[in-house]
Simulated assay, not measured.
Amino acid sequence: MSIICKNCGTEVVGNFCADCGQSADTQRLDIRYILHDIQLGLLYFDKGLFYTVKELFIRPGHTVREFIEGKRVNHFKPLSLVILLATFYALLVFLLDLSFIEANVENPSGNVIDYGFLNQWITQHYALVALGLIPVLSLGSYISFKNQGYNFMEHMVLNAYASSQRLLLHIALIPVIYILYGTTYYPWVSRVLLLLNFILICWCYSQYFNKQSKVKSILCTVLTGIIAYTILIGLFVFWIYLNSGSV
């Protein structure tokens, strides 16, 4: 039985496609792929960076869907990309003396969280924070888009690329953030970034889940955010509880 390359459509003889170089054994994404991707991200970075960046800002949802369906040889691996971009973004924040959190936050017990320490911790571990948000978002999108037929690991890949797209936006706007940081205009920068993040994820999801209407896709995207936000609030409250001396 002949094997057709999922990347370029050429008949494959042997283990790799003679035209594009993709492996003939391109399986559906699962936990083994995710673990392998994380390992690669911690050790080295493979090819396809500029191609993937271009695709994420031209046709984000379509290119992610094609990657999941088997066209993978030209793409930078999703979690490796998150690690690279998050590390670079955190380095810029550190070098420019910016911060991820703007003010002290009081917890329910009345104690004030040391946001200086929290900013330092987030800056030093931002790649892990970015990676940690992906399964939370993926749980939200998996529930919201349950009827679309993608497994949880495929949602992980989708949200890894979507997170990379938003990180690229933040990196591109670093000059604006730096110029307005500490001014009365800076809160508006945060609001604009939040709006742009929402627009990007709606764009990505609506292209990716192209079997349903754009209106329904946007509503499901909002539901994804609500679920993810609820999970994060729950984890934050639990963290405060653990550090309040109650246990």
Results as ranks from 00 to 15, higher is better:
1 M>W: 06
3 I>N: 14
4 I>H: 11
5 C>K: 15
7 N>H: 15
7 N>I: 09
9 G>H: 09
10 T>Y: 09
11 E>S: 12
13 V>S: 15
14 G>D: 14
14 G>N: 15
15 N>I: 14
17 C>E: 13
25 D>H: 13
26 T>Q: 15
27 Q>E: 05
28 R>V: 14
29 L>S: 07
30 D>P: 05
30 D>M: 08
34 I>P: 12
35 L>Q: 13
39 Q>E: 14
40 L>Q: 10
42 L>I: 05
45 F>A: 01
45 F>M: 03
46 D>F: 00
47 K>F: 03
48 G>W: 04
52 T>E: 01
55 E>A: 06
56 L>V: 10
57 F>C: 10
59 R>G: 03
59 R>S: 07
61 G>E: 05
61 G>H: 11
61 G>C: 08
62 H>W: 03
62 H>S: 02
64 V>E: 01
66 E>G: 12
67 F>C: 01
68 I>K: 04
68 I>Q: 10
69 E>T: 09
71 K>S: 11
71 K>N: 09
71 K>H: 13
72 R>D: 07
72 R>T: 04
75 H>A: 09
77 K>L: 07
78 P>M: 07
81 L>C: 06
82 V>P: 04
83 I>F: 02
85 L>D: 06
86 A>R: 04
87 T>I: 00
88 F>K: 06
89 Y>G: 01
90 A>I: 06
95 L>G: 05
95 L>P: 02
96 L>D: 00
99 S>D: 09
100 F>S: 02
102 E>W: 12
103 A>T: 13
103 A>W: 07
104 N>K: 10
106 E>S: 13
108 P>A: 08
109 S>Y: 08
110 G>K: 05
113 I>P: 03
115 Y>E: 04
115 Y>F: 11
116 G>Y: 05
117 F>N: 10
119 N>R: 01
120 Q>R: 08
120 Q>P: 00
125 H>A: 14
130 A>S: 15
131 L>Y: 00
132 G>T: 09
132 G>N: 06
133 L>W: 02
135 P>K: 07
138 S>N: 04
141 S>E: 07
143 I>W: 03
143 I>L: 11
143 I>Y: 00
143 I>R: 00
147 N>K: 06
147 N>R: 06
148 Q>K: 11
152 F>D: 00
153 M>R: 00
158 L>S: 01
159 N>D: 00
160 A>Q: 03
160 A>I: 01
162 A>R: 04
165 Q>L: 13
166 R>F: 08
171 I>R: 02
173 L>G: 07
175 P>V: 02
177 I>N: 11
178 Y>T: 04
180 L>Y: 09
183 T>Y: 14
186 Y>L: 04
192 V>K: 00
194 L>N: 14
196 L>D: 01
197 N>S: 13
197 N>W: 01
200 L>P: 10
202 C>T: 14
203 W>K: 08
206 S>H: 08
208 Y>V: 02
208 Y>R: 06
209 F>E: 02
209 F>I: 12
212 Q>L: 12
214 K>F: 09
215 V>D: 02
218 I>P: 07
221 T>P: 06
221 T>Q: 09
221 T>N: 07
222 V>P: 08
225 G>N: 15
226 I>M: 11
226 I>W: 03
226 I>T: 08
227 I>W: 11
227 I>Y: 10
228 A>P: 05
229 Y>M: 10
230 T>Q: 02
233 I>Y: 12
234 G>M: 11
235 L>H: 09
237 V>R: 06
238 F>N: 02
238 F>Q: 01
239 W>L: 13
240 I>Y: 05
245 G>M: 03
245 G>Y: 08
246 S>A: 12
